[in-house]
């Protein structure tokens, strides 16, 4: 389209403006990636593989004398995420099945809006709820501090629910009605139909829902930091205080300088890599769908 006249000129301006906007969005992603990589370089250079150990003994006055192994926190991130998904994924998929398959159409909208509202609750509120209700309760029942992977997992389960529920609902909704009819017409009960015809048919969409929920759980910071205990130790017990990558970064970023600070960026880099792996997973799962 050659625009020497007025309309063509405006067309070109708009096209350029949109191009600029898209460039800014994509550029900022690249910039963040580059920036985090650049900032973590000093730590990677001076610490090397120590970064991937459990040896975390920062030195605030002389950062380069400290040791910054993040394995304990990576472990915390992975365990809290898995814990959150172990609770949140079945709960979310079950909720989606209920809303789409069991609940009468009238209340489907109400339930859906309720779930969407849950997505809008700021994470600090959910964290606070965890801190004032959940942690004391776990403390009373188990006789521990109450902080730790269990509390964080429960909080994360609540936080991933909207993602898992809404996307699973979409996956179930997109199934042709004929599938359900075919199963019921063969004498399947409603539950058999859900279990053997609908869930398997929607499994890719549900898998994407769970992976995206996982992405949210990995990156969640505020709510987790409030209940995980923030101890700088490797923990495998559900009720032992520990840290996640995110909670470590937010706890330490104020007082860190030099290599200490760079080590925190390296943790951010690892987080980013984890999330990118998940996105790759989603890509693989949904590409498979097109081939069918």
């Amino acid at each position: 389209m050659k625009g020497s006249n007025g309309a063509g000129g405006r067309e070109r301006v708009i096209r350029f403006a949109l191009f600029a906007m898209a460039s800014i969005s994509i550029f900022s992603v690249l910039l963040i990636l580059l920036f985090i990589f650049k900032e973590s370089l000093p730590a990677i250079r001076s610490q090397g593989f120590t970064l991937l150990t459990t040896n975390w003994s920062p030195n605030v006055s002389d950062p380069s004398a400290g040791s910054y192994g993040m394995l304990a926190f990576l472990n915390g991130t992975i365990l809290t995420t898995l814990g959150g998904m172990a609770l949140g994924a079945p709960l979310g998929v079950g909720t989606a099945v209920f809303i789409i398959q069991i609940a009468p159409e009238r209340i489907e909208g109400i339930l859906r809006r309720g779930i969407e509202m849950l997505a809008g609750i700021p994470s600090v509120i959910i964290g606070w709820f965890g801190l004032t209700l959940l942690v004391p309760y776990i403390a009373r029942v188990t006789g521990t501090s109450g902080y730790g992977i269990l509390a964080a997992s429960i909080v994360l389960a609540v936080m991933v629910l909207p993602t898992v529920v809404v996307l699973s609902m979409e996956a179930l909704k997109s199934l042709p009605h004929e599938l359900e009819e075919a199963s019921l017409a063969m004498g399947a009960t409603r539950w058999q139909t859900i279990r053997h015809a609908l869930l398997p048919a929607a499994r890719r969409g549900i898998l994407v829902a769970v992976i995206l929920g996982m992405g949210r759980a990995i990156g969640e910071t505020m709510a987790v930091q409030m209940v995980v205990g923030n101890a700088r130790q490797l923990a495998f017990s559900l009720t032992e205080r520990t840290s996640t990558l995110t909670s470590r970064i937010i706890t330490d970023m104020g007082e860190s300088t030099g290599v200490f600070r760079s080590a925190l960026f390296a943790q951010g880099l690892v987080l980013l890599l984890l999330v990118m792996l998940l996105i790759l997973g989603v890509k693989l799962v949904s590409r498979d769908k097109k081939v069918k």
């Binding site: 004929e178 599938l179 009819e181 075919a182 199963s183 017409a185 063969m186 015809a197 398997p200 069918k292």
Partner: peptide, 11 residues
């Protein structure tokens, strides 16, 4: 048993 208008095999 019933057979429907559009073929509806399970995936």
């Amino acid at each position: 048993g019933m057979v429907f208008q559009r073929p509806n095999p399970f995936p």
